[in-house]
Design a protein around this nucleic acid. Structure first.
Lengths: 144, 144
DNA sequence: TTTAAAGTTGACCTCCAGGTCGCTTTTTGC
DNA sequence: GCAAAAAGCGACCTGGAGGTCAACTTTAAA
């Protein structure tokens, strides 16, 4: 498998459901339903996003969650950092432990360039871009 | 993490240790030592490579393993198929279950192109190319 | 024919991502 | 002040990847 973790996908989709201006509050349960994410699991994801300062929660009746910045200023790159930690950018294509600039694996040079392009794309992929897809009718597929 | 599994890396490195002409037999324990792979785990990897017809084992005293084809004719792509199954090529960048052509996720189009390039590179990355690195002194780093 | 060298196999262990549950805490409206 | 509504938190379960072990089978050399 060549991909980010499922949790990052959930996080991106959840954030794309929220008010792009970061003004009105959304309920965690509404987000979970809209994005088709198990509610309890979404809580944990939101906790990480909160720790990273991407969302802000308000407790109590009438509470909810909102983006701390506008959707145009939040990238998938940043979300991946918040969920997986910054190491996700440093992985080796062949999964070889200890592979690094000093001890490059046979695929290191190629993968370094390809990964840099992917990272750049993810940096440019902001939440408002993702919203274009979700607003165009895309729904998280339901698990079997 | 964006990478293939560690097992694929082990498999590639193990194969790169063997006679590129597929003639002389190599001992599993020698391969394990040369490539710095836990011996018992290597056995399981070799079993899969054998099931895929990439290597051939000969039992008994004086036995060992050899490539069934020349190193120039075996690609990392093929090895990944043997170890992970053919699904590794179809994964979604965001790890979203059910993402497909019919139900593309917001990163689907971009990732489809990027993945195709990666796959092409892996197809062109044959074992003899990998050997160039290992012969140039590269060693699998030792785990802590 | 024995024996030691080699690969083969299945059971088992550990760790982590993904996922679930129920309780706790905070806040608002009445 | 109290009850309901919301987020927050910690314990727990599950499956698969990575890894280990010991027993088993095959085979060639002595």
């Amino acid at each position: 498998m060549i991909s980010l973790s499922q949790s990052v996908g959930y996080a991106v989709l959840a954030l794309a459901q929220m008010d792009p201006e970061g003004e009105t509050l959304a309920l965690a349960s509404d987000i979970a339903e809209a994005a088709n994410i198990p509610k309890p699991y979404l809580s944990k994801i939101l906790a990480r996003l909160q720790a990273a300062g991407i969302v802000e929660g308000k407790r109590g009746q009438g509470g909810g969650l909102r983006l701390t910045r506008k959707a145009t200023e939040i990238s998938v790159y940043e979300v991946a950092d918040a969920i997986e930690g910054p190491e996700w950018r440093c992985s080796c294509l062949l999964g070889i432990p200890g592979c690094s600039e000093g001890k490059p694996c046979p695929a290191h040079e190629y993968w370094g360039k390809a990964r840099a392009e992917i990272v750049e794309t993810l940096r440019a992929m902001t939440l408002d871009r993702v919203r274009e897809y979700t607003e165009a009718g895309w729904k998280m597929p339901i698990l079997t």
